[in-house]
Amino acid sequence: MRINEVVKLTGVSARTLQYYDEIGLLIPEKLNNGYRDYLDENLEKLQKILFYKFLKFKLNDIKKLLEADVDNLKVLEQQRELILKEKEKFEIILHNIEKTIKTYKGEHKMTMEEKFNGFKKEDLNKYENQAIEKYGQETIEESKKRQSGKEDIVAEKFNSVFRSMAEYIKDGYSIEEKEVQSKIEDLYNYMNEYAFDCSVEVFSYIGKGYSQNPEFKSNIDKFGEGVAEYTSKAIEVYCNSRLNR
């Protein structure tokens, strides 16, 4: 299949396909006249690339995934779980928006409780709590037990991570850089040492909560503007790397 046919079939631009070829991500056959010829296996690989891109994987990570001997089905199933939990959260908000539109049109009258459905702390924490319920038993009690008598020390260890994140932002470090990922690993280890036995999957959900839970975000951003979002994204990179090993 010629490149213009692939563009028509997939919606991926010719320039993007050429770039994928240049970086070794998707290399088609080359005809004698220099034209690119995409075989069925190239198109199957392109579908995987598009899946991973949709799931916010970086091109470098996608290339490693495709080159490594990994269970692509397992990776996609894990990502599906994340998307389903995000979908549930956004459906609550979407339902709220639809009711609000009808209220403005005079077609519906919302109760005060309905107006704030999806914004309450318990709603915003919902998919994080689901992860805790699924992967961590008696997490609150266990956390209190592990921190007993060491509260100040524990707080300083966690705070040191967020202070470092603020410095990395100022210094222009990308979330993938070794120093950033090393500090995220410290955070993960502190979570396991002082909170509860935290799986990588649960750590991923907690990381999302840092940027999506207003209370978490507000507290973390006290260390510097954008620290919550930066840390959240850095945790996502760390967890994807661990899950794909």
Results as ranks from 00 to 15, higher is better:
V227T: 10
K233V: 06
Y104P: 05
E88G: 04
G136K: 05
N125A: 13
F196C: 07
E107N: 07
T10K: 07
N125H: 09
I62K: 05
V227N: 02
K115H: 14
F90Y: 15
E128T: 13
V6S: 00
L73N: 11
S182I: 06
L31N: 15
K48F: 12
N96C: 08
D152Y: 09
R80G: 05
L187S: 02
Y205K: 10
E41P: 00
N219I: 10
Q18P: 05
D197P: 10
D221E: 08
N33Q: 07
K85E: 15
E98K: 13
P28L: 03
K105G: 04
F116T: 10
I235Y: 01
E215A: 14
L46R: 00
N244I: 06
E142Y: 03
L82Q: 14
G172T: 09
E229C: 05
I220L: 12
R80E: 14
D221F: 00
N219W: 04
S148T: 11
I140G: 01
Y210S: 02
V6I: 14
S13C: 07
F216G: 00
L26S: 00
K45D: 05
Q78M: 13
E114A: 08
S174P: 10
N125S: 13
R163K: 15
K150Y: 14
Q181C: 08
S143F: 09
V70H: 04
L187W: 01
M110V: 06
C239E: 00
R163M: 10
I132A: 08
F216N: 07
D171W: 05
F57N: 00
N129K: 14
F51S: 09
S199V: 08
G11Q: 03
K217G: 03
K30Q: 12
C239S: 12
E77R: 14
E138Y: 11
E86M: 14
N159H: 13
R15D: 15
K157W: 06
E128A: 05
Y230D: 00
I175P: 00
Y19D: 04
V70R: 10
G224Q: 01
L39A: 13
I62Q: 03
E201I: 11
L124F: 02
D221Q: 04
E5L: 07
L66R: 07
K121I: 14
I220Y: 00
T16E: 03
Y135D: 12
I3A: 02
E151F: 05
E167N: 15
K45G: 06
L31M: 15
E167A: 11
Y127G: 01
F90N: 12
Q130R: 10
D171P: 01
K58S: 15
E138Q: 12
E156G: 07
K58G: 12
K217E: 11
G209M: 08
A68Y: 10
S160C: 08
S160D: 11
S174I: 09
F90P: 01
E88A: 14
K217C: 13
V75T: 12
N33T: 03
Y230I: 02
E201H: 08
R146Q: 07
Y194C: 01
F116E: 11
D21N: 15
A131M: 11
Y173S: 13
N244G: 09
N117C: 08
N72P: 04
K121W: 11
D69E: 15
K56N: 15
E88W: 05
N42M: 02
N42R: 02
I220M: 06
I184L: 07
E229V: 07
E167T: 12
D37F: 13
S182V: 07
K45M: 13
L76W: 03
Y210Q: 01
K87A: 12
V154N: 03
L17W: 04
E98P: 03
L59D: 05
